[in-house]
């Protein structure tokens, strides 16, 4: 990873859109594509393919990396007739979902604002679910109190 590539605002915005696609359900990607109007011609640069990515942890959480175990990952790459190439790399084995995300990534490069708007509902749903989980987890936080000792 080159630091200037990730620090560029364009890349950051594209990554944010890719993150929403990675967290989306297939029907949410369908809805986003429907909002945008499906592109007329999509060529597969690479047909969706499932493989493995080795996940890594760090010794002690913060030390040197170690290989923790693999995950299934599905990747797809498409090109729109207007020339933009789009990519998706997702945990899991859902080929159709990865291809839809790759189309959205390609569309993002032509019409970033429209794609951001189309993906916004996914962000809203994810944020609401996370907030609800956080509230339920917060209810299990321990409030310690010290017992009064008998001899006092």
């Amino acid at each position: 990873m080159t630091p200037d590539a990730t620090s560029s605002p364009d890349i950051a915005a594209r990554r944010a859109a890719m993150t929403l696609c990675a967290l989306a359900r297939a029907d949410e990607l369908d809805a986003a594509l429907a909002t945008l109007g499906p592109p007329d011609a999509v060529a597969d640069l690479r047909r969706p393919e499932t493989g493995l990515v080795m996940l890594r942890g760090r010794v002690g959480g913060d030390g040197r990396p170690f290989n923790a175990g693999e995950a299934t990952v599905t990747r797809a790459a498409v090109r729109l007739s207007s020339g933009e190439a789009g990519f998706a790399w997702h945990l899991g084995r859902d080929a159709a979902r990865a291809r839809k995300a790759a189309i959205l990534d390609a569309l993002f490069q032509a019409r970033p604002d429209a794609v951001e708007a189309a993906l916004a509902p996914i962000g809203v749903r994810v944020a609401a679910e996370r907030a609800a989980e956080a509230r339920r987890v917060a209810a299990t936080k321990v409030d310690f109190f010290t017992m009064v000792r008998g001899e006092d």
């Binding site: 990873m1 080159t2 590539a5 990730t6 890349i11 990554r15 890719m18 993150t19 990675a22 967290l23 990515v53 996940l55 942890g57 002690g60 959480g61 923790a68 995950a71 990952v73 990747r75 790459a77 990519f87 790399w89 997702h90 945990l91 899991g92």
Partner: peptide, 25 residues
């Protein structure tokens, strides 16, 4: 936790999605 991966064709880190993990210190 989010899992990041750097695909060769992109050259920058993309999120693959999220996994649940357990850690013991």
């Amino acid at each position: 936790v989010e899992v990041g991966f750097v695909p060769e064709e992109l050259g920058f880190e993309v999120p693959l999605g999220e996994v649940v993990v357990t850690e013991c210190q």
